[in-house]
Amino acid sequence: MKGMTVIVKKTTQLIAGIVFLYGIYIILHGHLTPGGGFAGGVILAGSFILLILAFGSDFMHLLKEEKGSTIYENLAILAFLLLALTGLLAGGKIFFANWLPHGTPGELVSAGFLPLYNIFVGIEVAASILTIFLALVIFKEEILK
């Protein structure tokens, strides 16, 4: 697909990195401030979509990106499931048991498993929405060919 004008490209260069960092902040601080894996993941996907829409991408590159995002998505949900499964093996023998030490509430490293769950759900949501977007773009390219 083709890119957009110089104005859009320059604005995207300035903004996309900040959007990406904001998404990471929302995910990592999910157990302290409003937000979490779902919100941060969508923001991460938004920064990628912004880059692809503004700069454009050739067909083979899009196919490679779709393959990568699909792999990331499935690995992230597998890691989420395995983390939940560790609760069954250790600690209280309960699925989803939060057996890591909780620490002091309010610090960045606290609340046991919750930040890890947030990170993996964030990766999963970002990769899912990016995959749907890439599938639509690739479909359009294939139709036009």
Partner: peptide
């Protein structure tokens, strides 16, 4: 849960 954000603690 040790999580200050109630929503994350619940979900």
């Amino acid at each position: 849960t040790g999580s200050v954000n109630l929503v994350t603690g619940v979900i």
